[in-house]
Amino acid sequence: MVGEKLDGSALLVDEKLLHFMDQLELLEEKRVALNSLIEQGWLSISKARYSMGNKQVSALQYASEIEPLVCVHARTLDNGEVDFFTKKVEQSCSNETEKDTSSVEDIGPQEEGVRRRIKPKSDKTNKDACEEERSEKTPEVTPVRQKEHSPQQDPLKWFGILVPQSLKQAQSSFKQVIELSAEIATLQTAMLKTRQELVDSMKNKQALQEKIPAAQSDQTVE
């Protein structure tokens, strides 16, 4: 009975180990791809710097308002693994943030209608009539906000309008790196999960192995 359990446990350990090794191999492959893409990106940045000038491609060129164009979604799966995947931020999201910022930053009068003017006290009747009119008509000037729907700015524009092709290549390399890094993050968490499962099943197997001599000695006594 214990022997059968031990066989089952040994098979499980083998299975988990193979799975773990597969994940490790995949991680290695993705790492190599990531490293070469980053290197390509740096090379392109260096080329752009060479053609634009040393200080034209630096941290000083970053915009004062930066909004993300890519976001990562983390989804926890049933087995406890976390799945990361990147997604482009849609325009609606940026509008929301714009709304937020405008609500914070708007200062000063928001009315755009004509304000009341003081009338000369020429004749009372006229004035009364005017007041009546006002009370009836007085329009509550509704504040009209003109929102500036500026599109999300492409980070390439921080470095100029006509940027060299190499900077565009750098951008595309780093975009790929971002996607790949989400995949690697998923793989890393999966690998750590598998590792934990493997350690648990190895402990289980060891506990069963310790039971075997005890069971055998019981049988010899009988």
């Binding site: 980053i38 941290a59 993300p68 164009l69 976001c71 990562v72 980070p155 790196v177």
Partner: peptide, 25 residues
């Protein structure tokens, strides 16, 4: 909108990733 990707790195690494569109203030 999901979560952000943060970077701690040298100038070129940060510039590259910001070009990729992960930056946020």
């Amino acid at each position: 909108r999901g979560k952000l990707i943060a970077v701690i790195g040298d100038e070129d690494t940060c510039t590259g990733f910001l070009l990729g569109g992960i930056g946020e203030l």
